[in-house]
Computed example of a mutant assay.
Amino acid sequence: MTAYVFPGQGAQFPGMGKALFDVNELAQTLFKQADEVLGFSLSKVMFEGSEEDLLQTRITQPAIFVHSTITYLAAEQTPQPDAVAGHSLGEFSALVAAGALGFPDALRLVSQRAQAMQDAADARPGTMAAILGLDDSIIEDACAQIEEIVVPANYNSPGQLVISGSVEGVEKASKILSDLGARRVLPLKVGGAFHSPLMEPAREKLQEAIEATHFRPPGCEIYQNVDGQASVAPETIKEKLIKQLTAPVRWTQTIQQLQADGFDRFVEVGGKGKILAGLIKKVDRNLTVDQQE
């Protein structure tokens, strides 16, 4: 069985979507619709903006969502997936691909999500760091022993876990984990402590927007970040999507659950390619990962 997967933040690149826009009428229509929904020309920034332009949170998240979603919707022959999943922000593209959300509604939520996260980060600055080469349990235990806010945020693949929290908390945890034998500790260039308790104000704002948005029963199962399990009931999907901002992204567990449920082929949609493929292959190198760009 085949699952379609959608990347999150970090999948942006200058010129994203321009090649598709130039040759595909449906893509042209959808890009114009996105500009109308947002009230500014996101497509111009995507096509002509610099790498720095694309790092602005209000641009980054809508740009990645729009690129992945239009890449999926504008494909000439895209079969109905057996299941979908998305890494953090990518979950919104997955919801559109599954038919649970319409493109305009999902884009509005993504835009509100980006602004809410930026506001929360401005109010309480934080950061993140990638920890390579340690068991998850060692990282979890180390974070739990630190008084400042620092938590596991992204379970990306076996041996790669991102921590998130206050600057002091992440610095202390990074030092401890380095001493415990981490192969590498990489501070990340991010705008805030995403998927940590510092995002609680953003979660509250997004909750109102999600609850006011109509979700349809999806055409396939959606494996969601907060627990790595499949969801089909609209209310369940909403509940998990609301929790996502302060809960860790359990990507490793998601891929393991998909594999346990019989999925052996994945199609990564959008982004600059092979971001998720590398993580999936670290779960099991025998899994097949194709690209839809």
Rank of each mutant, 00 (worst) to 15 (best):
E171H: 13
E171S: 15
E171T: 12
E171W: 08
K172I: 08
K172G: 03
K172D: 06
K172T: 10
K172M: 11
A173M: 07
A173K: 09
A173D: 07
S174R: 12
S174N: 05
I176Y: 07
I176C: 12
I176F: 07
L177A: 04
L177N: 04
S178R: 11
S178I: 05
G181D: 04
G181F: 01
A182K: 02
A182V: 08
A182W: 00
R183C: 03
R184W: 00
R184I: 06
V185M: 03
V185H: 02
L186M: 14
L186R: 09
P187V: 04
G191T: 00
G191K: 00
G191Q: 00
G192S: 04
A193H: 06
A193L: 10
F194N: 00
F194M: 00
H195T: 05
H195E: 02
H195N: 06
S196E: 01
P197Q: 05
P197L: 04
L198T: 06
M199W: 03
M199N: 04
M199E: 01
E200M: 13
E200Q: 14
A202D: 07
K205Q: 14
K205P: 11
L206R: 09
L206G: 06
L206W: 05
Q207T: 14
Q207P: 09
Q207H: 12
E208Q: 12
E208Y: 13
E208I: 15
A209Q: 14
I210P: 10
E211Q: 14
T213C: 09
T213M: 09
T213L: 14
H214R: 15
H214G: 10
F215A: 08
F215D: 05
R216V: 13
P217V: 07
P218H: 10
P218Q: 13
P218V: 10
G219Q: 15
C220V: 08
C220W: 03
C220M: 08
Y223W: 06
Y223N: 01
Q224S: 12
Q224W: 12
V226K: 07
V226Q: 05
D227N: 14
G228W: 01
Q229M: 10
Q229R: 11
A230K: 11
A230C: 06
A230S: 13
A230M: 07
S231Q: 15
S231F: 15
V232D: 15
V232E: 15
A233V: 15
A233K: 14
A233R: 13
E235V: 06
E235T: 11
T236F: 10
T236M: 13
I237G: 05
I237W: 04
K238S: 10
E239P: 10
E239S: 13
L241E: 04
I242F: 04
T246I: 14
A247D: 11
R250H: 03
R250L: 08
R250F: 00
R250D: 02
R250S: 02
W251K: 01
W251I: 02
T252I: 01
T252Q: 08
Q253M: 05
Q253F: 04
Q253C: 03
Q253N: 06
Q257E: 11
Q257H: 10
L258Y: 10
A260M: 08
D261K: 14
D261A: 12
D261Q: 10
D261Y: 10
G262Q: 03
G262Y: 01
